[in-house]
């Protein structure tokens, strides 16, 4: 159980995929315009990562090195399509606002990276821990960025159609630039600097 906890915890801070490893930034920056999108993307991403880590760790001894990458890609692409179809059918509004960034999870460097570096070398229990840890790490990063962008960019906080609160003074004059693409670059740049200032070594 010790190694389970260790593998779970490492993704959350020490090897955080977004802030430390700087991987899979495309969805993190692209869909973090609202909290809804961030939560939806985090859920979709974690389900795919978890399923792919489980399947790949189960078949790891039967896959020769030569076809490893194609096999992994087919498995991940299949899982992503399944998630995509389910979202389209059952949560169409979310599926529409995430758009092509759902199928693009296929080329998310974190998922193929975890398959290569972890699940193809370790047992299923550890792979589950690894996937959950990375998933939580990805989730809090994208939620934090979306919180900043939504709060400053719209001056209010909404979650799944419920209005939570309005920032005093910002509600009528939001800093719209945070909703624009460059706002995402700014948010993550300042966050990285902040973490480094606090003494966390962010990856190069």
């Amino acid at each position: 159980m010790h190694s389970f906890t260790k593998n779970f915890l490492k993704g959350i801070i020490r090897s955080n995929p977004t802030f430390i490893l700087l991987l899979g930034l495309c969805p993190t920056l692209a869909v973090s315009t609202s909290l809804d999108n961030a939560v939806g993307m985090a859920a979709a991403f974690t389900s795919v990562l978890l399923a792919s880590n489980i399947i790949i760790s189960l078949i790891r001894n039967y896959v020769p090195i030569r076809v490893r990458i194609p096999v992994f890609i087919v498995i991940i692409a299949t899982l992503v399509t399944i998630v995509d179809l389910i979202l389209q059918g059952f949560i169409p509004a979310l599926s529409k606002s995430l758009g092509m960034y759902i199928p693009l999870i296929v080329v998310n460097c974190i998922i193929l990276g975890r398959a290569e570096a972890f699940a193809s070398k370790d047992n299923t229990t550890n792979s589950i821990a690894d996937a959950l840890g990375m998933g939580v790490g990805f989730a809090w990063a994208i939620v934090l960025i979306s919180l900043i962008r939504q709060l400053l960019g719209t001056g209010a906080l909404d979650l799944f159609g419920h209005h939570l609160f309005t920032v005093p003074g910002l509600g009528d004059n939001p800093v719209t630039i945070f909703l624009l693409p460059m706002g995402a670059f700014f948010a993550i740049g300042v966050l990285l600097a902040l973490f480094r200032w606090m003494g966390v070594s962010t990856g190069e």
Partner: peptide, 16 residues
């Protein structure tokens, strides 16, 4: 993969 996707599609097609 094809089998899994065809099954998922059959389930979700009408819903979509």
């Amino acid at each position: 993969s094809i089998v899994a996707l065809t099954l998922t599609n059959a389930v979700t097609k009408d819903k979509i």
